[in-house]
Amino acid sequence: MPVAPSVHFISGLPRAGSTLLAALLSQNQAITAHGRTSPVAPMMIRLSSMMAEGEHATDFTDGQREALLRGVLETYYGPERGGIVLDTSREWCTRLALIERLYPAAKVICCVRDPVWIVDSLERLIVRDPILSSRLVPIGQRGTQHDRLEYLLSREGVFGYAWRVLTEAFHGPFAHRLVLVDYQKLATDPLSVLASLTRCLGLPPCAYDPMNVVNPDAASFDRALGTPGLHTVRPVVTLQSRNCILPPDVISRLQGGMFWRKPQATGQGARIIA
Rank of each mutant, 00 (worst) to 15 (best):
I131E: 13
P42N: 06
V40N: 05
S89R: 02
H171W: 12
L69N: 07
G229H: 08
M258K: 05
A175R: 05
L13R: 01
P130T: 06
F170A: 10
V137R: 01
P130S: 10
T75S: 15
R148Q: 07
C110I: 03
S48G: 11
D120Y: 01
D59Y: 10
D147M: 12
S241M: 00
Q27T: 06
L69A: 10
A265T: 02
H171C: 14
Y151T: 05
M44K: 04
Y208Q: 06
V112S: 00
G257E: 05
L47R: 08
E156P: 00
T227V: 14
R101Q: 14
G202E: 08
I84Y: 06
E100Y: 06
Q145W: 01
L203K: 03
V116T: 02
G226P: 12
N215C: 15
G229L: 07
P115Q: 05
P115G: 04
D114F: 00
R101A: 14
L69K: 04
L246H: 01
P5N: 05
F174V: 07
C111L: 10
P5H: 04
D87H: 04
A274T: 09
P235G: 03
S26V: 05
R124L: 03
V7R: 04
M1L: 09
A270T: 03
G17T: 08
D182G: 13
A195S: 14
C206N: 07
R36V: 09
E66T: 15
T167R: 14
L68E: 14
V193D: 03
L96M: 03
S192E: 10
D59N: 13
T232D: 15
A274L: 04
D62Q: 15
P138E: 08
G17N: 10
T88A: 12
P104F: 08
P248F: 00
I126T: 01
L125E: 06
P205A: 12
S49M: 08
H56I: 12
D120K: 01
H171K: 15
R234A: 12
W163P: 00
Q240N: 11
